[in-house]
Design a protein around this nucleic acid. Structure first.
Lengths: 196, 196
DNA sequence: GAAATAGTGTACACTTATGTACAAAAAATA
DNA sequence: TATTTTTTGTACATAAGTGTACACTATTTC
């Protein structure tokens, strides 16, 4: 019952995601976003509640579902290390090929929001924990399959998360794909999680 | 000749540095900074020209002189790897002990300004290049002293820069000194640049 | 068709922020 | 003391941004 929205909500969320990815959260005012979407602020607030709530929706969307954050496309047959290596190589390519050099929305948000925005700080931290837990889970699989040596998997997961962080930050400055990948590969090999 | 400033310029630069470190560049408006300094915007513009010029001054100040960026306190006698390890351990402690979890002003600025602020993008990139060159130079010393194996020092320097980046980003989220240092140490050991 | 419901447009009453212009004030030099 | 130089305070004109209130419009259900 009631009047229909004059815009597609899902499309709008995607548009806002790209705006926040490119310009950062704080640079995206309700006014600017509303104008970008071609709606009034009135409709914006009605549809999304607030910028904060919208960000929460966007970051969940960006990172994928909490229970199944399958970035590395791990399956039963192929090597876990191979999946990690191939995925990070794809990331290097994607980040360098992005003309706006946006890096990663989530990692940008750590720098911009943690300990700066009281409402979103816990959201970002929660997403971070989920990420590290995911990395630890795939390293556990790698260990079970004998692909890596026994070690503190929590620390190894944090070290792998570190490679992801620096790859994304570095990609804003190192705009040569070969150089970015050589650096990432060097780190992966050092950590013993690289496989051709 | 002429009237004296009613504030200490150097003190003001330090105050603004801390404001930008804590809140980020864009969050520090000319109005907000002027009020923080207890001066009028008129005096602010007169003394610093613009927010951009002031940032340039601050980041040079923060990173230290271009020709002598001696963060790792390398000297003729002690081990280069030991200096690196001890310095990064000090960084872990400092970052976790910072109640505002500000991370590193320079690394925060990469995320906030590169490809977003036309005027400051080249300033940040230039500082980055200087940093990597510095890291490569100390790795060269380490190689000459037989502390590391022969390899592509440019890539090794970028990998070491990666550890610095992730340590600083990670420190906003990983608030336990032992865990942060364990992760950093693990990465340094993997890269073959750790020494007790 | 009337009632209920949900989205839209306009207005309000702010606050923040920009950079410049110009007069007034203070200090050094001539 | 008069002149020059620099800093400071106030004002201007304008744009961006906040969240809410309320009438208006479109749509569905009864």
């Amino acid at each position: 019952m009631g009047r229909h929205k004059e815009f597609n909500r899902d499309e709008a969320v995607t548009t806002v995601m790209n705006e926040m990815w490119e310009h950062g959260y704080e640079a995206c005012s309700a006014k600017a976003l509303s104008e970008k979407l071609g709606i009034t602020r009135s409709s914006f607030y009605n549809a999304f509640g607030s910028r904060e709530k919208l960000f929460e929706e966007i970051i969940q969307n960006y990172n994928g579902p909490k229970t199944n954050r399958d970035w590395f496309l791990i399956n039963e047959t192929s090597s876990v290390l191979k999946s990690i290596s191939q995925t990070l190589q794809r990331f290097c390519r994607a980040r360098v090929n992005d003309p706006a050099a946006r890096g990663c929305l989530f990692i940008n948000s750590i720098t911009e929001l943690v300990s700066k925005n009281d409402q979103l700080d816990p959201v970002v931290k929660d997403n971070f924990s989920t990420n590290v837990a995911y990395l630890e889970s795939i390293l556990t699989v790698a260990l079970e399959r004998g692909e890596i040596e026994k070690c503190d998997l929590r620390i190894k997961a944090l070290a792998l998360q570190s490679v992801l962080i620096s790859l994304n930050v570095l990609s804003k400055v190192v705009r040569d794909e070969d150089e970015l990948w050589a650096t990432t590969k060097h780190s992966l090999q050092a950590l013993g999680v690289y496989k051709e």
